[in-house]
């Protein structure tokens, strides 16, 4: 505790008064409150994860990954359809959201007149969009699928529309930040050598911003992979076939977890707990990849 106290107070108090206020009762109480706030969330999270892991422990086996959901053999129920479905959904979502998001961000940062009213309205709405409840994007995707003439909407394309819309604001905002972090000296240098704005953006600014863009996109996708609400609105159902294309019927890992955890039989609840851990590992893995990319390719100018 004293270590943290020193880092927090030394910089300010020590330099002003020349002596540490470590022993001050009020500051100790305040520090205790801060530590409590910090650990409250962590402890609750840890308790949840450990509880779920214990509940799901009997089912950490290969069948969990290779088998479909089963009513005939409850002990062997698996999440093959959900895992493959989530992989397909993520890949399709990425294909939709990344080009659109980067395009929008490049336009807003490099080409749009930032003082114009339109740009300001877009700016505010982007922030708002990032906070819209995910279920709303599910309804939007239902509308899009209806317009495209799909009668059955629980297919890869429908789910990817919903998730792509969901992460688009995140991708745009992080891409803009990554582009903004590229020093203007680089742009000026390129422009001074006679390159057009387009050439500068394409050959200098964007490549320098790629690590930041990749990090933001992966964080966006790791939010999307845990979403169930927008997919439920689309009517994703239980399937026992691997997806073969964007028009295949599909299910997702969170949907299977949601469905199985409400079943009366204990076997399904155990399997659902095990699948929650699988989902958590996937999300943590994606976040770790994002951090890895950020640390490895980050550069300072």
């Amino acid at each position: 505790m004293s270590l943290a106290t020193r880092t927090a107070s030394d910089a300010v108090t020590a330099s002003l008064t020349g002596k540490s206020k470590d022993r001050d009762v009020r500051s100790m109480v305040f520090l205790g409150a801060l530590w409590f706030s910090l650990f409250f969330g962590v402890v609750v999270l840890l308790a949840l994860i450990i509880d779920t892991a214990i509940a799901g422990a009997p089912r950490f086996d290969l069948q969990l990954f290779t088998e479909y959901e089963s009513r005939i053999n409850r002990d062997g129920t698996g999440f093959r359809a959900g895992i493959l479905g989530s992989v397909w959904l993520m890949a399709t979502t990425a294909l939709m959201a990344i080009p659109l998001g980067i395009g929008a961000a490049v336009y807003l940062e490099e080409f749009a007149d930032k003082k114009s009213r339109v740009a300001r309205i877009i700016e505010i709405n982007l922030q708002n969009l990032a906070a819209v409840p995910s279920i709303i994007y599910g309804m939007l995707a239902v509308a899009i699928m209806g317009l495209l003439g799909y009668v059955y909407k629980g297919i890869v394309l429908g789910g990817a529309f919903a998730l792509a819309l969901l992460i688009l604001p995140v991708v745009i905002i992080t891409t803009r930040e990554a582009i903004r972090a590229v020093p203007s000296d680089i742009r000026h240098g390129s422009l001074a050598l006679g390159a057009t704005v387009w050439q500068t953006t394409w050959r200098n600014t964007l490549p320098s911003a790629v690590p930041g863009i990749a990090t933001g996109t992966i964080l966006g996708l790791s939010r999307a992979i845990g979403e169930a609400a927008p997919l439920l609105i689309l009517g994703l159902a239980t399937v026992r076939d691997d997806p073969t294309g964007i028009e295949s019927k599909v299910t997702a890992l969170p949907i299977q977890i949601y469905n199985l955890s409400a079943m009366s039989q204990l076997e399904y609840q155990v399997a659902a707990s095990a699948a929650i851990i699988v989902l958590l590992v996937l999300i943590l893995g994606m976040n770790a990849l994002a951090i890895f990319i950020r640390n490895k390719f980050q550069r300072s100018w």
Binding site: L236, T238, V239, R240
Partner: peptide, 16 residues
């Protein structure tokens, strides 16, 4: 699920 064991070419989706 039982039908799938007999005939794999029928793709059924069951919602809730």
């Amino acid at each position: 699920e039982m039908l799938k064991e007999e005939n794999d070419s029928i793709e059924t989706s069951v919602g809730f």
